[in-house]
């Protein structure tokens, strides 16, 4: 690696499409979600800071950094702080794998599994925040979160394997490049793909704990759930992690299920790829916010029953159909 290549790599890691870019995009995602939800609910949303309130999430972040941090005597504060530093780091690591420019900073065969693993660890960390806070509400929220977690993560993993099966690859970049060529080569896969896309958005909604699955932090039942004791700088980091999580959900589903990118040969093509990936991400987040705004919260027993009896078998069924069709096991295909 020549010094110039090293310099470019470091710039990419720190600026674009690395830390600075992901930080700003996460804040933009928060603005987008807040504004969309507000417009769906016949409100205005952020308006004052910046044009159309674009800088409001940044202002909130900076303000929270300066706010008083209330440390509970009986909570494991060191563990909570550690968890809240690791949490955004996990999501940033996962976001490095997304091919923002048609290619990603880190890409290897199997990075899809890495992203799923990182999101799994993050769910565990959210549970830990609630447990270490030692508040009755946060413990109830944490227990609710962990009991949902299995029911959501299994179908999410299975459904993310559907595009992997379609494209014969476990690398997110390759899946994104080869999705449409593979689908067009074997049109029987298109209904399977459409079904899995519809289901994966529902499952991702549950993974993000938004309505109708906002049970772990149901405000009217258990106040704020697992992050009830988080304030000040900790809350800033928690909010950042939350924005990163939404961004990851949108971009991962956008890239793996909508594809449409290719390996760029010129800066112009890279820019085109960038616009496509961003549009896909915002489209998926739009769907997620839409579901959030048109539903009421369900009860935890109803959700668990629905997921274990319907969603998990259905996702296994979709994956098997994808494998069968891809493997050419139907004589008429």
């Amino acid at each position: 690696m020549t010094p110039l290549e090293l310099l470019i790599f470091i710039t990419q890691t720190l600026v674009f499409p690395g830390f600075a870019y992901l930080f700003l995009l996460a804040l933009f995602t928060e603005w987008y979600v807040r504004k969309l939800a507000a417009r769906f609910e016949n409100r205005l949303g952020p308006t004052y800071t910046g044009p159309h309130g674009l800088l409001q999430p940044l202002a909130d972040f900076v303000k929270l950094l300066f706010k008083e941090e209330i440390e509970l005597k009986y909570a494991d504060n060191a563990l909570i702080n550690g968890t809240l530093i690791i949490l955004p780091a996990l999501f940033i690591a996962a976001l490095f794998v997304i091919p923002w420019l048609g290619f990603s900073l880190v890409s290897f065969e199997g990075d899809l599994i890495l992203v799923i693993l990182l999101t799994g660890i993050s769910s565990g960390l959210l549970y830990a925040i609630g447990w270490f806070s030692k508040n009755p509400y946060s413990v109830v929220g944490a227990v609710r979160a962990i009991s949902q977690y299995l029911a959501f993560d299994i179908p999410l993993f299975i459904l993310l394997l559907v595009p992997a099966v379609i494209t014969n690859s476990l690398s997110i970049s390759t899946i994104s490049h080869k999705l449409w060529p593979s689908l067009l080569a074997n049109p029987w896969l298109i209904p399977v793909w459409a079904l899995s896309l519809g289901l994966v958005i529902l499952v991702e909604q549950a993974e993000l704990e938004e309505n109708p699955f906002s049970i772990p932090h149901a405000e009217q039942e258990i106040v704020a759930g697992y992050f009830v004791e988080i304030s000040g700088r900790r809350l800033a980091f928690y909010d950042l992690a939350r924005d990163m999580q939404i961004l990851l959900a949108g971009s991962l589903i956008g890239v793996t299920f909508l594809g449409l990118t290719w390996n760029p040969r010129s800066p112009l093509e890279a820019a085109l790829n960038f616009i496509i990936v961003l549009a896909e991400t915002l489209l998926v987040i739009f769907e997620l916010v839409l579901i959030k705004c048109v539903t009421a919260r369900l009860r935890i027993d109803q959700v668990l029953e629905a997921f274990w009896t319907y969603v998990i078998p259905l996702s296994i069924f979709i994956l098997s159909i994808a494998i069968i069709v891809k493997g050419g096991l139907f004589p008429w295909v």
Binding site: E41, N42, N211, P212, Q220, C293, T295, A296, R297
Partner: peptide
């Protein structure tokens, strides 16, 4: 009550 059930849109409307 819509808000109690988490249905903020209905509450606002």
């Amino acid at each position: 009550v819509a808000e109690l059930m988490g249905f903020t849109t209905l509450f606002m409307l």
